[in-house]
Design a protein around this nucleic acid. Structure first.
Lengths: 347, 347
DNA sequence: GTTAGCACTCGATGTAGATGAGTGCTAACA
DNA sequence: TGTTAGCACTCATCTACATCGAGTGCTAAC
């Protein structure tokens, strides 16, 4: 079956309506608000669209809801870039630079502004020491339940962390892990290290794998972040309470619990690609994010990526607006960093 | 009317039951579980207790709920100190010191452990540069809507913050405010400055007062905190979802919004007295906290207060347990700091 | 290919009655 | 005089049932 012009028009209408109201959209509504045809015609088309996987049906007698496939299509093909008006831009910039004294502060502010405009949960990743490389990784057993994780970086940063193990580890397991970690991590930049998933390489040794996942990894990530001096800011957390999809207390709870695992989020964000990324629902690796969409953008200094800005919200979000605002904000941040770099001489 | 032995016993029973179940307690329940007398007798006594303000009555045909006055009485007079068993202490200590490498980290960990044990929201205030004093405070107008807030401390720290005003300010207002702030803040330590409420002294000038409250104060507090390097950690935020009092989405929302205004909380906590403090419901200055209780304790180094640890929860909380755990944790933190001080020579 | 018409589905809403936990009051009892 | 049994009354909660209406799918006519 083909996605005819009219089908696209209807799909767009359903998405637009559903994004606005969060209620399943019926054929009458669309027939009334758009000049497409009678309810019956639209019903037929919607039925086709459902067959093609773009719409779903909460129950027999309810309207249609866009599927993730529909959002993906919309984002890839149908979404027009929403140009911000000069007034909007001015308002955002004004907001962004108010109360801002330092760059670090600007990042935090950007998350704030972003969450206010989009009414979603915004996050920002402040720049870290991206160039620094890991030189040495070691696990030293102290007693049955404790090991010391040592990291040394090229720039000379040293970190020793005592890690309590959930279960006692054999010396052999520790040797394997230590060797494996050194092999995989040394020579990598700190941020690269955060993105590497060494679980794969441990598959041969279940014990080592479990130990790494449960005991070592959290401390390791935390230490890397500290060394990177990566800072994650979040804002607009409570915005989700205004969304009907989180009216259920359990949904809200799950969301907050997910958000609270900061470390996870940082890892996820860091590993994202350059530029604007839109990840919809199940496209997210993380199960907890499977009914959320995440939009991120990077900001740069000297052409190097240094940080991220983004939002998390329900798959039903105003992708066009969100994208535009994030883009405008990251542009501004990049610009601000450039100015700052120039300013350095003057100070 | 007198608080007879029996009345106290009944009150204690109501509190114990209500803390456990969050349901209004009826006369039959108490009659069954405690050897006090028949339901009718207990009803009569409860009626008296209500008249005296210790119990309330959600509606005619429901059981009794302790009032804040009852909790206050309980905390002051009836509560026995709950001694932690050696096992409990060991478990807490084990938990506290796991994954801990630095003192800063210990504080964060303490908040974590505290929230896990109490199932409430815990916070911890990490030590800052308490001795440093404010030397100079100034407001410099830049344009109608912007002023630069300058703070200089004894130790030479300087901070310039551009503050956007909600409303344009007359030069006169700025002069008044600037003078007032200098007068009130200079010579004070940074943490003292955080506790001073200069709103009082501005009452004569409504415009200055509003401007201070809405525009200046947030930046001022923030800057002070930065200079102090005070860090507020929170943990167990999502614990409230398990509490029946927050089953209502709006309640949860209000709670999170309150918690998110970190600055406010810091201010409130810093201004708290030494030792263990229990603030119940309306006793809290902040309206948003009016159905919460806050328990805090200080930890010390060299006899000087350096930080705080505490929980926020519904007025219905296990005050005895919470108090014991917080006390044990702050003792441990103080001890750890002492050791660290001693260790310095070795490193 | 489009549309009007109609039967059907199913969640949402509203109402009435039953249930039960709990109170307050009265009168009898120790 | 304090305690208790008994009883009428209150009120939130639950269940069953009817109703409503938004929306669909299908058929037949245009």
């Amino acid at each position: 079956m083909d996605l005819t012009e009219r089908k696209l028009k209807i799909l767009q209408a359903v998405i637009a309506d559903f994004v606005r109201t969060a209620e399943p959209v019926g054929s009458r509504t669309i027939s009334k608000n758009y000049e497409i045809g009678s309810p019956a015609t639209i019903r037929n088309e919607m039925s086709d669209l459902e067959e093609m996987g773009y719409l779903t049906h909460p129950h027999t007698s309810s309207g249609r809801v866009p599927s993730e496939k529909a959002y993906r299509l919309y984002v890839n093909e149908m979404m027009k870039k929403r140009e911000l008006s000069q007034e909007e831009k001015d308002a955002i910039a004004k907001d962004l630079y108010s109360n801002v004294t330092e760059l670090e502060n600007l990042i935090e502010r950007a998350a704030h502004v972003l969450s206010e405009i989009t009414n979603l949960t915004a996050f920002a990743l402040a720049p870290g020491n991206e160039q620094d490389k890991l030189k040495y990784v070691n696990l030293l057993p102290v007693d049955d339940n404790t090991v010391v994780l040592t990291l040394v970086s090229d720039s000379g940063k040293v970190s020793n962390t005592a890690v309590r193990l959930k279960k006692p580890a054999s010396e052999q397991t520790l040797r394997i892990l230590s060797k494996n970690m050194t092999y995989n991590y040394s020579g990598k930049t700190l941020s690269e290290a955060l993105t590497i998933d060494i679980i794969q390489t441990l598959k041969t040794d279940a014990e080592a794998m479990v130990m790494f996942e449960k005991s070592i990894a959290p401390s390791f990530i935390r230490t890397l972040e500290d060394m990177l001096n990566v800072n994650l800011y979040m804002d607009g957390l409570t915005n989700i309470f205004a969304l009907p999809e989180y009216n259920d207390i359990n949904k809200a709870k799950t969301f907050f619990e997910m958000i609270n695992r900061k470390a996870d989020i940082t890892q996820k964000l860091i590993s994202r690609d350059e530029g604007i990324t839109i990840t919809i629902g199940e496209e997210n690796q993380d199960e907890d994010l499977s009914d959320c969409s995440v939009v991120t953008a990077t900001y740069h200094v000297d052409g190097k990526m240094v940080g991220k800005l983004g939002v998390i919200g329900p798959t039903r979000m105003q992708y066009d607006e969100v994208t535009s605002v994030i883009e405008y904000l990251t542009d501004n941040i990049s610009k601000a960093f450039m100015l700052e770099e120039g300013d350095d001489d003057d100070l």
